[in-house]
Design a protein around this nucleic acid. Sequence first.
DNA 1: AATGAATGAGGATTCATTCAT
DNA 2: GATGAATGAATCCTCATTCAT
Lengths: 199, 199, 199, 199
Amino acid sequence: MLTDPSVTDKRLLILRAALRLLAGCGFHGFSMKQLADEAGVAAGTLYLYFKDRDALIRQLHQEIIQTFAQHVLAGHDPDKPLQQQYRDLCQNVWLFCKTYPEMLLSKGQFDHLPPDVLRDHFLSAWQAFGPLRVLFDKCREQGMIKPLPDEILVTLGFETFINLARKYHLGLVSEQDMDVNEIIEATWHAIALDTRNRI
Amino acid sequence: MLTDPSVTDKRLLILRAALRLLAGCGFHGFSMKQLADEAGVAAGTLYLYFKDRDALIRQLHQEIIQTFAQHVLAGHDPDKPLQQQYRDLCQNVWLFCKTYPEMLLSKGQFDHLPPDVLRDHFLSAWQAFGPLRVLFDKCREQGMIKPLPDEILVTLGFETFINLARKYHLGLVSEQDMDVNEIIEATWHAIALDTRNRI
Amino acid sequence: MLTDPSVTDKRLLILRAALRLLAGCGFHGFSMKQLADEAGVAAGTLYLYFKDRDALIRQLHQEIIQTFAQHVLAGHDPDKPLQQQYRDLCQNVWLFCKTYPEMLLSKGQFDHLPPDVLRDHFLSAWQAFGPLRVLFDKCREQGMIKPLPDEILVTLGFETFINLARKYHLGLVSEQDMDVNEIIEATWHAIALDTRNRI
Amino acid sequence: MLTDPSVTDKRLLILRAALRLLAGCGFHGFSMKQLADEAGVAAGTLYLYFKDRDALIRQLHQEIIQTFAQHVLAGHDPDKPLQQQYRDLCQNVWLFCKTYPEMLLSKGQFDHLPPDVLRDHFLSAWQAFGPLRVLFDKCREQGMIKPLPDEILVTLGFETFINLARKYHLGLVSEQDMDVNEIIEATWHAIALDTRNRI
DNA sequence: AATGAATGAGGATTCATTCAT
DNA sequence: GATGAATGAATCCTCATTCAT
């Protein structure tokens, strides 16, 4: 996995180097030669592991998504109270984004992959997030949360932490400014179905 | 302004062409030659209006921010009820993002501008959003919303609509799936300070 | 003439500006736009006075040669003693090269004009130097100088001062280092026919 | 060395090609593409050996200076009579300039290198000409030549042959016109200190 | 498997020249 | 005559990719 430094598989070494460069300089200004240097291999070696630049970018994208999913779902326990599960997931999202800013920074870089490729990646990601769908289903069944599609719940809930992490790394908010638990509660209010919430 | 097609100032024509390309293919694969073609001018002409590629990108970024601010604050009336003001702003954010997807898609492309440039742009944007800060201040004074920094309120509130618009344009959510007013309420729940909200 | 600042003929203004630029940055890095700015006219105006860049360069070359000839022959008096005439000419060469370094610096820049053009220019220059040929002829007739072709006498005599002026402007020799009269004598030794000179 | 055709080091191949082009067309009109073609390599290859065009020009300049020095000092024997040493050096200068006209023609092209670069190159050249300084010192000590600085002696002596070679290659003087030994004597008269020389 | 020199198409940028005003 | 915005060919340079070793 991208975040596991003990793995020395050369393919992963290259992807990790690509991630560092992507975060550092974006797509432009990251050349295959630079990547080779950063990864500590020769230029030609890259092509033993990846058909071409595009293939490398796509695989990196997928790898990031998988890594993200694994970190977010780490320690997930479907037997805990539902709201606790939600809190744990939020914590994980926040922790991951805070710890690995390069994944965040490179996110926008992928927005222009061909749409069909993007779709494929999202679908496989969604599969990795199966437990999340289960959680949302249960919450909806029990009338705990609003009857909104998963995608929208994700935006109201988890994506908030991604956005905050970006601001955090840009220095627009400091950790003193925010009590993560407080914000988790806030996002819960957004998705929770509480008759008393009605205005 | 970027969204006003009646303006024929050549500088703006070029920026608009750049926006279309940026949305269509991202930074890479958008060459100055392509831009010239898209804008209907010769390659050399670009350099009469912009010192170089970087200057063009930076000016585009600022133009987008300004345009965004103007659309969001359009029709803003500080004399309306506070919550209504919030609703209006949310509506505007959603409408703008839905109507001009290219602004959205190009957003991630700017993440790698030099940090100091990014900071400058954000600050000038924040100035344009003065009425928003006033609104938040009033709401906080009256105990209507949680005592969170503006930046976080923005994320919990408005950025939700930006994220949703992206998904909308990617086809991940359809307009049938979502009742915008419902989502506006949801984000209000996120930021609102309601003692009954306490869990 | 290039060195006469009272002439305000626009053609000459342009040529003088070209000379300044040529001396300052060589052929490369001197653009028609720069020239227009330096001359204080619009780019298009250059083409009212010169067919194209090449024509301008050629005319500049000729102008420099003519100016050089006029300065060198200034005050020439064919009735003075022959050796004194030689001394005067040397003095003039030195003075001119010292006073107008830009003419010197631009000299090497013309070495790559098409050979036929160069030839034409040299021939017309040689015509302007008629009095010099007369002087050499008289000296040779009287057995004062070696029976060498004019071209070689010029090299042994006058070109010495051109070379020294270049070194002077590069700071490789200072004026303290050199007594011009002494050097004039030295060059005279080079061309003089003195039986006692024989080794 | 630039004049040794047996060396096939690619860097030298490129420099030699650059020299041919420089002599043929001067700085302008010699493009990196042309150079690549002339050298028989791809355009990109140039940049494997030289950082950019400027670096190439600078290195060419130094290479020319070094080559010139080596040829001029070839066969130099400090044990010969001093005047004979001088004659040998003059012969070498003449021979070199006659044989490799491209080095001559490119000379003026370097006049616009940045002054500090020019200075560096001249200093390193001067080091290579150590034996020449020794010769001048000895001659001055023995009262054989005028008490002039080395730089001026060089101009009066050796540079004469450079200038003549230029005229020779331009067809302004033919070899029939000139007896090199005669001219060597003439330059010796210029620098020699002979009381009988006094006029 | 690994290398890295070589390639050459493609990018950003410049600049001589034109032409409508 | 004079302007200077517009042009687009040509320039320098980069970089993804290949291939002989």
